[in-house]
Simulated assay, not measured.
Amino acid sequence: MNTIAKLTELKKLMMSMENALGLNDLSKVERDVYCAACELTDESGRVRTMDMLEHTFVLNVSRPTFFRALKSLLKKGLLSNNGVEGRGWYYVKVTTANAND
């Protein structure tokens, strides 16, 4: 199997996993921001905006686009902020399918 064929199979697998997790309704930027947040979440379930902005998945995303995606993820309930820690801290809601792993 050549490299492109392997990449194609990997992409199909990733799309299938995103669908299973209910992430297929998110835009590419929203998925990238959400995945970055999931990876960077600390032991208390929090993630900082500044850390997400420096993550590999969103390095090429403009700040306004990043913050629009962040706002959208808040609206969709995948991220939340309770205001206790102040600005710049978010809690990641782990999808039901992901919580079983």
Results as ranks from 00 to 15, higher is better:
Ala36Lys: 03
Val33Asn: 06
Asn100Thr: 14
Asn81Asp: 13
Val33His: 04
Gly22Ile: 09
Asp25Gln: 08
Gly86Asn: 05
Lys6Trp: 04
Ala5Trp: 02
Leu70Gln: 13
Ser27Asp: 14
Glu43Asn: 03
Val58Gly: 10
Asn81Met: 12
Ala5Gly: 07
Leu40Gln: 10
Phe66Glu: 10
Met17Gly: 02
Val47Cys: 03
Leu53Val: 14
Glu39Phe: 03
Tyr34Gly: 02
Gly77Gln: 02
Asn81Lys: 15
Val84His: 10
Ser44Phe: 09
Met14Gln: 04
Leu74Thr: 11
Gly22Gln: 09
Leu59Tyr: 04
Leu74Ala: 07
Lys12Gly: 00
Glu30Thr: 05
His55Gly: 12
Cys35Glu: 05
Ser80Lys: 10
Leu53Ile: 13
Arg63Met: 09
Val58Ser: 08
Met1Pro: 15
Gly22Cys: 08
Asp42Ile: 08
Lys93Phe: 04
Lys93Cys: 03
Arg68Ser: 07
Lys71Phe: 00
Glu43Gly: 00
Gly88Asn: 06
Lys93Ile: 05
Lys71Gln: 09
Leu10Gln: 07
Leu79Met: 14
Leu21Met: 01
Phe66Gln: 09
Cys38Trp: 00
Ala20Gln: 08
Met1Lys: 10
Leu78Arg: 14
Asp42Lys: 02
Asn100Pro: 12
Ala97Asn: 09
Leu40Ala: 03
Leu21Cys: 02
Glu9Asp: 09
Leu23Phe: 00
Asn24Leu: 15
Val33Phe: 03
Ala69Cys: 12
Cys38Lys: 00
Asn19Phe: 04
Gly88Ala: 02
Glu54Phe: 02
Val33Met: 05
Thr3Cys: 08
Asp32Gly: 06
Glu39Leu: 05
Val33Leu: 08
Cys38Asp: 00
Leu74Asn: 14
Ala69Gln: 12
Met50Tyr: 08
Gly77His: 00
Glu43His: 01
Asn2Cys: 13
Val61Asn: 05
Leu13Cys: 06
Glu18Gln: 10
Phe67Thr: 13
Asn19Val: 10
Leu7Met: 07
Val94Gln: 01
Asp25Gly: 06
Met50Trp: 05
Thr56Met: 15
Tyr90Ala: 01
Arg68Trp: 04
Leu40Asn: 11
Asn81Cys: 15
Met50Leu: 11
Val61Ala: 06
Thr8Lys: 14
Asn82Lys: 15
Met14Pro: 00
Ala99Met: 12
Leu13Val: 15
Val29Glu: 08
Tyr90Leu: 04
Asn82Gln: 15
Lys12Met: 03
Val29Pro: 11
Ala99Cys: 15
Leu21Asn: 02
Gly45His: 00
Ile4His: 07
Leu7Arg: 04
Ala5Pro: 13
Asn82Tyr: 08
Glu54His: 11
Ala99Lys: 09
Glu30Gly: 03
Asp25Lys: 07
Leu53His: 06
Leu23Arg: 01
Glu43Ile: 11
Ala99Asp: 11
Pro64His: 01
Ser80Arg: 12
Leu74Cys: 14
